[in-house]
Every structure is written in C-alpha cells, then in structure tokens.
Simulated assay, not measured.
Amino acid sequence: MGDPHRVGVVGLGFISRAYLTTLHGHPAVRVTAVADLDTARSSAVAAEFPGTEAVSVERLLGGAEVDTVLNLTVPAAHADISLRAVDAGKNVFVEKPLAVTFPDGREVVERAAAAGVLVGCAPDTVLGTGTQTARAAIDSGLVGRPLSASATMVTPGHERWHPDPDFYYIAGGGPLLDMGPYYITALIHLLGPVRAVIGAAGRLRTERVIGSGARAGSRIPVEVDTHVSGVLEHANGALSTITTSFDGVATTAAPIEVHGELGTLAVPDPNHFDGDTRLFPLGGTGWRTLPPSAGYTGAARGVGLLDLVTAGGQRAPRAGGELALHVLETMTAVLRAADEGRRVELTTTVERPSPVPLTPVQEVVPQPFA
C-alpha cells in the first residue's frame, strides 16, 4: 500500500490529544512533526510519540518532511496557518471552523485549488455510524420525501469545563461558529446544501466565570452573541431550524430530527461519531432503533484526515474544504441575517459528500495522490 502519509500537527492544545490518539500507529499515516508556540509542550508530545519530531511552526510549514498539515490552532489562526501550508505546497486539514470569516475561508479554498493541494476540515464526526446511518435511512426512502429538520444544541457554556475558554466569547467564537459546524454539516450530509437563511441572536450576560484549571474564578468578557437561532432553506426545498446556545441549561430535544412524508428520524448527536438512529414510521406505534448500516466504525477525531488520505486526490474528501466553506458561509449568513433583520441568500453551494460504506477505521489505507 506504499509509505504512510506524513502528517505534521500545528497546535497542541486541548483537542490535539484526540487526534494524535487516532493517527498514531494507524497504517495510513505517520505523524512526523509537531509544533506549538509553547516549545516545551511540543517537546513533551514528541517524546511521547516515537518517530515524531518537535519543530518550530515555521519549519513544519516550510521545510519539514510533511505531506499534510493538521491545523489545530485557535480559530483566529486557522486561515493564516492553512494559507501558509497551502503556499508551501502542502495539503491541510483544519479544525472547525475553516476560518473566522467567510472571505478568509474562501481564500483558503481558492488558493489551495490554484496550488493543486487538498483542503479538509472538521467536523469529521458526521462520517461515523451515527449520521451516516441516518443518511442511509433517508436515501433509502424510509422517511419518504424530507420536508423539514430541527437541530438543537443547548449548554450553559464551555467556561464551566475548559481551562482557557476566552476564544469562545470573542470574534470567531460563540455557539454557532463553535458548535454549529457539527449540526449544519450533518444537515448538509442528510438534506443537501443551503440556499438562503434567516436568523436571530442575543446574549444573556456580558462576562463569564472560568470554572476549572489554574484560572478558575477569573472573569472573561463576552463580545459575541451566545444564543443564535436560524432557519435554513435547503436547495431541495426542505427547511431546517437550528438553535445553538451557551445560555441554556439543558434540553429534551433530539440533537437532530428529520421529518418526512413517511416518518420521522431521530439522529444522534453529531458531536459524536456513533449513537442510535431511531425511526417513527407513519402509522407506527413507537420508535424503532435502526442498526448501523453506514459510516466508519470505531471512528474518532482524525478520521476525516484519514478519509482525505484515502481519497488520494481521486475523489473529493468527505470532510472537504468546499463543504466547510459552505458551512462557514451558512453560519456567517445566519449571524448577518440576525444583525440586519433580513433573509440572506448564499453565494456558495456544494454537492452532498459521497456516503460512507460501513467500514472499520483500521481498513482505511493510503492511496497515491493523483
């Protein structure tokens, strides 16, 4: 199957552990280099993973033996790091969102296309058996023609558990840009692209209190709206409603529900890879759990990068840059619609990614890049 695909990781914060656990030892890839502004942190990570070198960010992006850069920096740095990787002729897979602003995200995708390199972007949770089984149910006609969907994420805020939550509450943060990628990406996998949106937003308070870590008890300012609701008009005519909130406590709503002529589908949390997909058919008397029928089994953070490697330039990555750009425009359009009090039409569209057959993650193997 050839040599493993070489991956360099930039940014070794909270989420990096999940990615490294997935990628280290997988036959498709080899983590050759890691870099962080905290050099002690990168040295510690390199020592933990044999064959991995701690290098500077500049060297990893420019000179290290790396085929694809895994960009796990904070959202404000996503576009800069991705563009520097692209300009060095490297593929890039970036943590969500693709960028803080739509123009920055578009620049990443356009410059990558011009350079002949690939862009991938989280969330890749939607490639697991949860969302993919729900998609297979829709595609096979179990709910008939989809008419509408709802997506709900309610939490009291990430400052309760994250030791450095500042970036969630400044430009580029907020519940929609942080958690919306999971739900909107899942809705696009399930129902297809979005053509227009409306929205409304607000915030409950102007500061938050950190609840854990060395800064516990410290107060941080809130500069963005922390409760956002939107209506998404899909190109196929279906309407989705989405609510993302850092101001609530709990909800009884299913993470996603899809309503069709012949039934309703309860879709598991798109922040997770698996979970039960349940169907309530027209005329039925209760919910029926569907067995997993599609998606990567045993998946965890990083499977989207593995999917990109499997694509080898011969098919579109299922967690690809064009999809991430469409998701980013959808989110920023909802925020703009809320701010301006009007319906906003999107300028991008995207094909639904190809479905994922039921596939064990360890069977993902690298392909030569075209």
Rank of each mutant, 00 (worst) to 15 (best):
I81C: 12
T252I: 13
W161P: 01
R342S: 11
Y19F: 14
A149V: 08
G116W: 00
V356A: 03
G248M: 09
P366G: 07
I210V: 15
A316K: 08
E223Y: 14
G173I: 14
G180C: 14
L70G: 09
T244P: 04
E329P: 04
V57C: 01
D307H: 05
S354V: 12
D339M: 01
A200Y: 01
P317Q: 00
S212Y: 08
G263T: 11
P193F: 12
R315M: 14
A253F: 07
A28C: 09
H234C: 08
F102S: 09
V194A: 03
H189N: 14
H26N: 05
T101N: 09
E58A: 13
V143H: 08
V222G: 02
G302R: 08
N71D: 12
D36R: 05
E65P: 01
T155D: 12
A333F: 07
P292G: 00
P97D: 01
V117Y: 01
V55F: 03
L306F: 03
L232P: 12
T39P: 02
A122I: 10
E159D: 10
I188H: 00
G341V: 15
A77L: 14
P75T: 03
P270G: 02
T349H: 12
I15S: 11
G213I: 12
L127K: 04
F102A: 11
A136E: 11
P103N: 13
R215I: 00
A76I: 08
R106L: 15
W287I: 11
V258K: 05
L279V: 10
H78M: 06
A337G: 03
G313I: 07
T252G: 06
A196I: 14
V224E: 04
S140L: 02
F167V: 14
V361S: 02
A79T: 09
T277E: 06
A266V: 08
A18H: 07
S245Q: 05
V57Y: 02
D124F: 00
A196L: 09
T347H: 06
D225F: 10
A299V: 12
R135K: 06
V267M: 03
V356L: 05
A64D: 05
L305S: 00
E261A: 11
S148F: 06
I210Q: 13
P317H: 04
L37V: 15
A33I: 04
D274Y: 07
V55M: 06
R30P: 04
V231A: 11
T252K: 09
D178M: 12
P255G: 00
E207W: 00
L265Y: 04
E107H: 05
P270C: 04
H227S: 13
L232E: 03
A235P: 03
H272W: 04
T289F: 00
R106V: 07
R6E: 03
P97Q: 06
P27A: 09
V126P: 01
P123D: 07
E110T: 14
